[in-house]
Nucleic acid binder design. Structure first.
Lengths: 199, 199
DNA sequence: GCATTATTTGACACGATGTCAAGAATATGG
DNA sequence: CCATATTCTTGACATCGTGTCAAATAATGC
C-alpha cells in the first residue's frame, strides 16, 4: 500500500471553499488540484468524480453547520432561539467572499440539474437528510416552547414552514442582495409563528 | 439583409423546454440546435451565448406565468386567491417531465453560480424583476383583502413572506419529491397569514 | 444589376471531465 | 532482508461543450 500524499480533510476543505466561492459549475477539478497541490488524477482516484467530491465536501460542512444550529436553537426563550436561528442562517449567506448565498441550496440546485444520473439521487438524499435534521432541531425547540407556553401550534408543520422560509431566503438572497430585507422577512416569520405579529 | 431561416419564438420555446427538462447546465447548445433544426453558430449569432439564450427563453416563459398568476390571484375570497396562487405554484413544479422543480429558481441558481461575469448581473436583475412582480400581485390581493376585512397586517412584508415561502417550496421540492407535504406547508402558510391557524 | 448587410456554415481554439496504463512508493509475508 | 502485492501518482488521451472567426450565401435598397 502506497500512502496518500495529501490530507483527505484538507482537500475537502479546500474544495468546499472553491465550490462556495465559484459554485460547483464554476469550479474545475484543475482549480482544486492546483490549490491543494495535488494531481487531478489523484482526486479522481480518491473521490471518484466532481459531484462525489462536492458531496463529501458538503457533508463535512453540513456537520459543522448542524452543530452551530443546535447551539443557536438551544438557548434562551423560544423567540430568542428562533431569532438566533434565522440570524445564523442569514449571516451564513453573507459571510465569506462573494458571490454569497447558501452553499447547500446552490449546490443542490446545480447538481440536481442533470437528468437522473445516479449521483443526482445521492445529492437529493444528502440534502433531504440535512433539511430533515434542521427541521428536527427547529421542531424540538418549538416543542420545548410548547411546554413553556411560548408556542401553541403544531410543531411538526410549523418547523417545516420555518425551514421552508430559510430556503426561500437563500433564493431571494441571490436575487436582491438586500440583507435588511431578509431580516425583515425573518422577523415577520417569527412573529407569525409566535402569534405576536401585528395582524 | 438576409432573412433568418428559423422562427425566433420557436427556438425560445424549444430552448426553454430543454432547459426545463435537463437544466441549464445539462443542456448544450448542440442539443437545442439539433432540436430546432438550426446550426449552432446561428444560435450564437442570434442570441449571443447560452446564458443570454436562457434569459430570453426564461423571460418568455415568465410573461405567460405572470398572466396565469394574475388570474389566480384575482378571483374570489382572499383565502381562495392565495390557495389558487400556491396551487398554481406547486402544480407548476410538477407538471411536465422530470426532473421537475421551478425552472426559474433552478435556472437562476445555476446561472448565478459563476463568478461575477456580466451576464450574471442580468440574470439577477431578471429574476429580481420577476420576484418583484409576483410580490406586487400578492400584495395587491392582500391589500384588497385588507379593505374587505379578510386581512389586517402589513401587505408589503406579508407578500414578501409568502413569495419567500414559494421559493422555499421550489427548493424543498427537489429534496423531497413529496407533493402532499408541499401542500401542507402552503396551507399552513395561508392559515398563518390569515390568522385562522390553529395556534 | 450591384453593393450592402445580415445570416449561415464549418473549422478552429480552448478548457473541462473522465479514463487508462505505466511508474513509484510503501506495507506485508516469507 | 528481500520480493511481491497493493495502492497511489502521473501524464497522455478521448470526448464533449463553449465561444470565435472568416468565408460563403442570400435578400434588400439604390
Amino acid at each position: 500500500m502506497r500512502p496518500r500524499e495529501f490530507d483527505h480533510d484538507d482537500v475537502l476543505r479546500i474544495a468546499f471553499d472553491q465550490f462556495w466561492r465559484k459554485g460547483v459549475r464554476g469550479t474545475s477539478l484543475s482549480d482544486i488540484a492546483r490549490d491543494a497541490g495535488v494531481q487531478r488524477g489523484s482526486l479522481y482516484n480518491a473521490f471518484g468524480s466532481k459531484e462525489a467530491l462536492f458531496l463529501q465536501a458538503y457533508e463535512r460542512y453540513a456537520g459543522d453547520y448542524l452543530v452551530a444550529l443546535q447551539k443557536a436553537l438551544g438557548a434562551g426563550s423560544l423567540r430568542k432561539r428562533l431569532t438566533a436561528f434565522f440570524d445564523l442562517t442569514i449571516t451564513n449567506f453573507r459571510s465569506g467572499s462573494p458571490p454569497r448565498g447558501c452553499p447547500t441550496t446552490r449546490g443542490l440546485m446545480e447538481l440536481g440539474a442533470a437528468e437522473g444520473e445516479g449521483l443526482d439521487e445521492d445529492a437529493r438524499k444528502a440534502f433531504a437528510n440535512l433539511v430533515s435534521r434542521i427541521t428536527a432541531l427547529v421542531q424540538d425547540a418549538l416543542s420545548a416552547g410548547t411546554e413553556r407556553g411560548e408556542f401553541s401550534g403544531n410543531p411538526a408543520v410549523a418547523a417545516l414552514h420555518i425551514v421552508t422560509v430559510t430556503r426561500g431566503l437563500a433564493v431571494l438572497e441571490r436575487a436582491f442582495d438586500d440583507e435588511p430585507q431578509l431580516r425583515r422577512i425573518a422577523a415577520h416569520t417569527i412573529d407569525l409563528v409566535l402569534g405576536k405579529g401585528a395582524r
